[in-house]
């Protein structure tokens, strides 16, 4: 089923275009990496604050509302550029275990970030739950590191 879909997708005009125009994939990858740079850096600031390691001059609540919007703003561009790369090389991505691991980690980290963000409507929520905040911060930072590593390993499968 999925292999057939990959096959079909890689023969569509748009996929053929991406495959044959030399600069499209590196250019789109560059934008993709720049998006990841923005997301991981803002998430690192937030996660380290959740874990209580940096930026203590600001409350957790302020840190969440300062950093999370950058993630939601960048994520669509990241997904769009990611989709272009998938359309260009469907089999290389969709049939790749590193790609699948990357997507699983992405889903978890988005869920954690959404949870942290939604609960932050009550400004005192995370102040009162320091150990949960710490756990969320550490796990999400590790997941981002895993996402970047898995992303690079896709090329070596």
């Amino acid at each position: 089923m999925l292999p057939n879909f990959c096959n079909w997708l890689s023969n569509t005009p748009i996929s053929l275009k991406i495959q044959t125009v030399l600069w499209i994939i590196p250019a789109v990858q560059t934008v993709h990496i720049l998006c990841i740079a923005i997301v991981i850096s803002t998430m690192a600031m937030l996660d380290l604050r959740l874990a209580g390691l940096t930026g203590r001059s600001q409350s957790v609540s302020t840190a969440v509302s300062r950093w999370v919007p950058w993630v939601w703003g960048t994520l669509p561009v990241m997904l769009l550029t990611g989709c272009i790369l998938i359309i260009g090389e469907p089999t290389r991505e969709l049939m790749n275990p590193y790609f699948r691991a990357k997507m699983a980690m992405l889903a978890i980290v988005v869920a954690i970030t959404l949870f942290v963000h939604l609960r932050n409507k009550d400004a005192a929520y995370w102040e009162a739950r320091a150990s949960t905040a710490k756990l969320a911060g550490c796990v999400s930072l590790l997941l981002w590191v895993g996402i970047i590593a898995a992303g690079r390993w896709i090329a070596y499968y």
Partner: peptide, 24 residues
């Protein structure tokens, strides 16, 4: 088989942190 991609992952991770933080 694994050293180059592993070092490369560290390189990419470090570069994204450099670029993202300097951007701020």
């Amino acid at each position: 088989t694994w050293l180059f991609p592993t070092i490369e992952s560290i390189h990419v991770l470090a570069v994204t942190l450099v670029v993202g933080s300097i951007l701020m």
